[in-house]
Amino acid sequence: MIRLTIDNIAVTVEEGTTILQAARKIGGKVVPPAMCYYSKLKGSGGKCRTCLVKVVQSSAKDPRPMPKLVASCSTPAQDGMVVQNITSPEVVEARKGIVEFLLLNHPLDCPVCDQAGECDLQDLSYGHGTEITATEEYRREFPVTDIGDLIQLHMNRCILCYRCVYTAEQLTDQRVHGVLYRGDTAEIGTFIAQNIDNDFSGNMIDVCPVGALTDKTFRFKSRVWFLRPMDAYRDCRVCKGKAVIWMAGDEIYRVTARKDRFGEVEDFICNECRFDHKHPEDWVVEGPRSIKRESVISANHYLQKEDPGVIDPIKGTIT
């Protein structure tokens, strides 16, 4: 076991743990935001740069600081490491810059985007961005491409996190989409006209941090915060059948996987559960899904289970 401090809070983790995972163990505000890293997808991380942190002491053995900010998702923690996240003005500034880059070519179409209300990029820009847009340039515009009946691709919204590519690669054996071209014209696509269709393709929707991949069967049906998310399960031969059903009245509007407090899917679900079972009698309801208090989805609904309190490293109080 190794011991490190992040924003002056000590934590003990197993060797090989990344700084980000160590921070997640502490929880609360010291957890760096992550737009591309996904603990369940091998090879993910390092790309979006939102989780950059400052290492002021590399380890007990080597007390030198690291020369640059490092991606906490892919930098292993060391014994005696001293990390600054929100206690470092440099990190806060750099992160503002990263948010600005991610928003640079992202369309301001939240009012017509199905992801609104559960979008990591929205959360990121509220939490870590600035109010003003400095750019006056035209935003990047991709031609619209069709990838099948179940999933809607809006390339303009994509931040190239590569999560959907890893999902296709690691959950299925016939990946048909990938990252094409390069630089700021790189895009997610199939290159030739074809559908992305396999038992687990729907998970690409859940792992997408933005509204680039959304559920076509749920398109424009409802804003997510008007729905009641319920934990539910069903006997499924393909997956564990543990899902969240999003209801209004007695109707199921959509089915998604269950996400943990860091926004990651707990168990991937199959397309049959996601797309083919929209009758309440298909599911056994466990109860209301716990949603973060600060999420717009939990507004005006019901009280949620309390999260254990964590120390705010700047104020020194429990939040």
Partner: peptide
Amino acid sequence: MTNISGRVIHKQFEKE
């Protein structure tokens, strides 16, 4: 490629 207008020109290809 992009051009200054921001439009990306990528063709959808077909298998012959």
